[in-house]
Design a binder for these strands. Structure first.
Length: 726
DNA sequence: GTAGGGTTAG
């Protein structure tokens, strides 16, 4: 039916087949009639004949149901297909690559089928709605079920509905269906336990697990998979072990590799490699999921050699195994290893998927490896990967963090569909480059586009305000978060606002803000206050913040360094020495500063005073030349920040060998104008290096784009984009 | 002759 009018057979034959299939829209008023109608905006033309199925592209290489095409041909040749044939085809599509076709067929069945749908039809159709998270469509199916005396108590249909609402992310609605199931079987309980698990309501799930046993429904292997998985998510090793023991005790729980894998995953998530290894070695059948799960276990606990060894031993690696190792490297900050493995993958002629590309792009972001990032972007285009939200977000993030804001904006603007992550990534891009106004404008546009901001959006906005010194704007956004946007500020948001106030010198207001926090102040809140005190040389408040910070994170070396800098700036060398001794006693080391620069696709890393580079002679000659040209324009090294109380000329030498200066020197000799020198530093850039970079950009007439831990500095003609506010 | 629930990478 279309627009409420039933088409006659004659109409059908006159119309052209539709070329694009879109999801059908079921109007809610149709619930009262118990029939499904196609809305006028559905894009579906009802001139669809059985022969048209042959026009669809079912040759997708990952098509999981090899017989579908065959069935379609058969189906289209059946002059009067019966309900059984309809059901079979709906089932095939519900599990196929495009479940929308199952819903289309269902609608078609209602208007043109030989019979009304039966108790077999509904589970297939609801499953399709679940696969699509199509809440409205599934709810309409639910409406039809409820009104039917035959279906409203059918346990198969009701169980599928529980699963459907869970898949749509609404465990509350799932529970309403579950509560109304007249006599629940083990699948009902399993579905509801899983619904809670999907909604991160782990304790509710475990309560239900106990309740089902009280009602004398025996858990089966599927129940135990969920139970194990919940223990993993809760990091409850004790309960996990009890579940495992229960399974071993009860012979009626059927062994399966899915169950073994779920237990393995539980042990890995709980961080018990011993249990995981024991189970892994006792497993008779290990599939690629088992191997990959074990691999993730080694990676997460930092056993990278064991992980690599396991990876090399795997009998058959699928793309998920590669992705696991690449992602683990990338998330542990081992970006170079991640990219090396990405390279191996290509050498092995394995096709990356979207997950691989997201991880590789993320590794590029961390390293500032723009050339490789561009190459991956070209690869995506060449192999016509669909730019989904994930990939788009990663590309924007990569270009932003590699210092090419223009390209980030290109990607952003060429994307029509933008979810909250895509918008937030672009806002973050502007923020880290100090383009506060643009970030705020984009937030306005995002609201015009009716995309609801989330907590991350606000973090990025605050970051923009902080770097651009937009204090009033930051305060305004903060005050609107809960009342206007319904997002309760978390500790991270409080750190941001403390940072904004503190940087602007409003230390008292920042202190007051911390006092009014509804949750205990986190380490990062105190860190923000400490940073502000360092900028504004407030030793007393700085000590106060540092004391609180160290109470929460005794081994935070960053705090020691900032406080030490604060003492150093105010010339209190005794305090510096005391602090350094206490750091030494607790074997705390300052994180080594490291700067990297990419030249022709190769990333070169420099540490302080590094002499490991093959071109070290040339680099040090260049450094000498820079030093003399800087002196000629009146530059005096800012030695206050050299931590040790050492001799003056030694201080000067230590300062002149900071990693970013080595990278700048290398950049000058290995690249040429007008290409900017792009440097990525793992820590915040120090005052002296910032000054040197400004002067070099003027004297050598070369732009320098330096990314530090927190933001970008664009040095050009002797000035920096941050206006010395960072 | 057709049916429901579960594990890995992001």
């Amino acid at each position: 039916m279309l627009g409420g009018k039933k088409l006659s057979a004659g109409d059908k034959n006159k119309r052209r087949p539709s070329s694009s299939i879109q999801i059908l829209r079921i109007r809610t008023q149709d619930l009262t009639t118990g029939r499904i109608e196609l809305g006028p905006d559905s894009g579906f033309s009802s001139d669809f004949t059985h022969q048209d199925f042959q026009l669809f592209d079912f040759t997708h290489q990952d098509f999981p149901f090899p017989n579908v095409q065959y069935e379609i041909i058969i189906f289209s040749r059946i002059p009067f297909p019966n309900l059984f044939s309809w059901n079979t085809l709906i089932r095939a599509h519900a599990a196929g690559p495009d479940p929308r076709l199952a819903l289309l067929l269902f609608a078609r069945l209602l208007s043109d089928g030989p019979d009304d749908p039966d108790k077999f039809t509904f589970p297939f159709a609801i499953k399709a709605a679940a696969a699509l998270s199509a809440l409205r469509e599934g709810a309409a199916l639910h409406g039809m079920v409820v009104k039917s005396p035959f279906f409203s108590s059918d346990i198969f249909i009701l169980n599928t509905l529980v699963h459907f609402y869970a898949a749509c992310g609404d465990s509350g609605l799932a529970l309403r269906v579950f509560d109304n199931i007249p006599s629940r079987d083990v699948v009902s309980w399993n579905s509801m336990i899983n619904a809670f698990a999907l909604g991160d309501r782990w304790d509710d799930a475990l309560r239900l697990f106990e309740e089902m046993q009280r009602e004398n429904v025996m858990p089966n292997d599927v129940t135990m998979v969920s139970a194990a998985s919940i223990c993993g998510k809760k990091c409850d090793l004790e309960l996990g072990r009890r579940i495992h023991a229960y399974i071993q005790r009860n012979d009626d729980i059927e062994a399966s590799s899915i169950l073994d894998n779920a237990l393995l995953d539980m042990y890995v998530k709980c961080g018990s490699l011993e249990d995981a290894e024991l189970l892994f070695h006792s497993m008779n059948t290990k599939d690629s999921i088992s191997w990959t799960t074990m691999l993730v276990g080694y990676c997460k606990l930092g056993h990278f050699h064991a992980a690599r060894h396991l990876f090399d031993q795997m009998p058959d690696r699928d793309i998920a195994s590669w992705n696991a190792l690449i992602s683990c490297y990338e998330q542990s900050g081992r970006s170079k290893e991640a990219l090396d493995l990405f390279h191996d993958l290509q050498q092995a002629d394995v096709k990356p998927d979207e997950v691989t590309l997201v991880a590789a792009l993320s590794a590029c972001s961390q390293l500032g490896a723009l050339e490789l990032g561009c190459w991956i972007h070209a690869y995506i285009k060449k192999n016509s990967f669909a730019l989904n939200f994930h990939l788009t977000t990663s590309l924007i993030d990569m270009y932003s963090k590699c210092g090419d804001l223009e390209k980030a904006l290109d990607v952003f603007e060429s994307t029509k569909n933008r979810d909250v992550f895509v918008w937030s990534a672009m806002i973050a891009g502007f923020a880290m480059h100090g383009e506060g106004k643009e970030a705020l404008d984009l937030f306005e546009q995002m609201q015009e586009a009716k995309v609801k901001p989330n907590g991350v959006t606000f973090t990025n906005l605050f970051c923009a305000c902080s770097h651009a010194g937009l204090v009033d704007e930051g305060k305004l956004f903060f005050s609107k978060m809960l009342p206007v946007y319904g997002i309760a500020p978390n500790a991270e948001h409080y750190s941001c606002i403390v940072d904004i106030l503190g940087r602007a010198g409003l230390l008292e207001e920042a202190k007051e803000c911390i006092r009014n926090m509804p949750m205990p102040p986190s380490a990062s809140v105190w860190g923000a206050l400490l940073g502000a005190c360092a900028i504004h040389r407030n030793v007393e408040l700085g000590e106060h913040a540092c004391k609180h910070l160290l109470k929460l994170e005794p081994r935070n070396h960053g705090a020691h360094v900032i406080l030490s800098n604060l003492y150093a700036r105010s010339g209190n060398w005794n305090a510096v020495a005391r602090l350094r001794k206490s750091m030494k006693d607790s074997s705390l080391k300052k994180e080594a500063g490291c700067s990297s620069i990419e030249v022709q696709g190769v990333v070169h890393e420099f540490l302080v005073g590094d002499i490991s580079h093959p071109l070290k002679e040339k680099i040090y000659l260049q450094l000498d030349e820079i030093a003399s040209r800087l002196k000629a324009v009146g530059y005096v090294p800012d030695k206050k920040l050299v931590l040790q109380d050492i001799e003056e000329d030694a201080k000067e030498r230590a300062l002149s060998l900071h990693s970013e200066k080595l990278a700048i020197a290398f950049g000058l000799i290995s690249t040429s104008s007008p290409a900017p020198i792009r440097i990525t530093k793992n820590l915040r850039v120090c005052d002296d290096c910032h000054l040197v970079a400004k002067l070099v950009s003027g004297i050598y007439n070369r732009d320098i784009i330096l990314r530090d831990r927190f933001r970008f500095h664009h040095f050009t003609g002797g000035l920096c984009s941050c206006m010395d506010y960072w």
